[in-house]
Design a protein around this nucleic acid. Structure first.
Lengths: 236, 236
DNA sequence: ATTAGTTCTAGTCATATTGACTATAACTAA
DNA sequence: TTAGTTATAGTCAATATGACTAGAACTAAT
């Protein structure tokens, strides 16, 4: 293998190593209020640097896979999940991100549906955390999560990401709860539903959500496509 | 050096090589109409693959510089320019971008002021092209430029990028011409100026642009900051 | 069975924003 | 002096937004 056979001088001259990491968002009910909140899975570092701290799932980029494939594989390997939404976030390449070597990380962010997220593997070294209560993470991963949250909030206002955190069928109140969880403020139910009803990508179904405590709300379906990335653009 | 000493099998196993490229936009008057249009500098490939074709300026990432620094240096080396605006565009990492080896390119995009752009170095192997008339470029660089244009148009609508294509003082009509050049459609002068006048970041000066053929327009100044990138975020 | 409580849903109204358009001001060139 | 052109301010209708009211439809408690 390359790095093990190279001496120190060669390592210095060698190009920075390249890694892929992923910020994976999913909604889970808050333990107290029961209202949906943002969660993400982290893995515990089992070696130096930052041994014992939590970090974003990630790994090296292998030779035969594209960046997106690498992110997708990594996500599946650590959590067992197949995300509905996967997009490149940013390439982080500061000089001192890792104390031991120069690493450039190309970070992706993903959204998974709650039904899937509930099935996600969890173990001693893989655990889900509330996005607003992470503590100190390894490397610059706190800053990366902050940026991913900023992007999520931005994309939410713009367009179509909210539905990738929900199942196929959803009520308009559920969509509003996603917005409230991500933006961290309450929205007027009546005005919010007026806006959603005016977007053609949200389709009314004949079904209603039964079993609730109050008037059963109508179920809707999202018919739009994500697509803005260069890697996703030609998908029709 | 690493790559020259490795044999074929080692190159296969080695991590993909990492390069930085930059899409540099500047306004130049159209040759026919004289109205401002988007131009960008390209460099001619002097070796295989794609020898003789035009390509985005770029090069390898050296060990001691951040991604942004590498883009900045590269830009200065090929064109002599110091851009007013420099932001990461995307990391391109498809498997077959280069026929000879696996390359991951982290691409930046830059905006330079016309006064600077006029001073840019030009030579046999460095030449400026109209952004809408590039012909076939090396590698996947046509797709990269397309994506950069898409981002530019997007950011324009959102916020503050237009001013980085202009000098320190500008007329509102000049701003409108930037929008018209980038979005490729005409805008109503009266409505456009009403919008600009309602944005607090545009400051009225007491000066007027003299020497024109008609009523002298007032000069304005932009007082906002760019900042959205993780690398630029903490700049106050 | 009735009532209270809650959410779902549709609507009103004032305000802000946008696009199309008109009109006047201020300059140059003929 | 006048015609031509751009700069600039303003009007008006259509649309979008935020605050709010109110009835419909269900459950749970009395």
């Amino acid at each position: 293998m390359y790095t093990s056979s190279a001496n120190v001088a060669e390592r210095q001259a060698a190009p920075p190593s390249l890694a892929i990491s992923t910020v994976i968002f999913a909604l889970r009910p808050s333990e107290k209020s029961g209202r949906p909140t943002l969660w993400l899975p982290l893995v515990r570092r089992i070696r130096e640097p930052f041994k014992g701290l939590w970090a974003l799932p990630g790994g090296p980029l292998t030779h035969a896979e594209s960046l997106q494939d690498a992110a997708s594989r990594n996500l599946r390997e650590t959590t067992g999940l197949a995300p509905k939404y996967l997009e490149q976030l940013y390439a982080f390449g500061g000089l001192h991100r890792s104390p031991t070597q120069r690493v450039v990380s190309i970070v992706y962010w993903a959204l998974v549906q709650p039904t899937e997220a509930a099935l996600a593997d969890e173990s001693e070294n893989v655990k889900w955390f509330r996005a607003d209560r992470l503590g100190d993470l390894a490397f610059d991963h706190n800053a990366i999560v902050d940026y991913a949250l900023w992007r999520l909030r931005n994309k939410l206002a713009y367009g179509s990401v909210a539905y990738h955190l929900l199942g196929e069928y959803f009520t308009l109140a559920e969509v509003r709860e996603v917005y409230e969880a991500v933006l961290d403020r309450e929205l007027d139910p009546a005005n919010f539903r007026r806006q959603l009803k005016s977007t053609p990508e949200i389709e009314e179904t004949g079904e209603y959500l039964q079993g609730g405590k109050h008037r059963p709300p109508r179920l809707y379906r999202f018919t739009g496509r994500p697509g803005l990335d260069p890697d996703n653009r030609s998908t029709p």
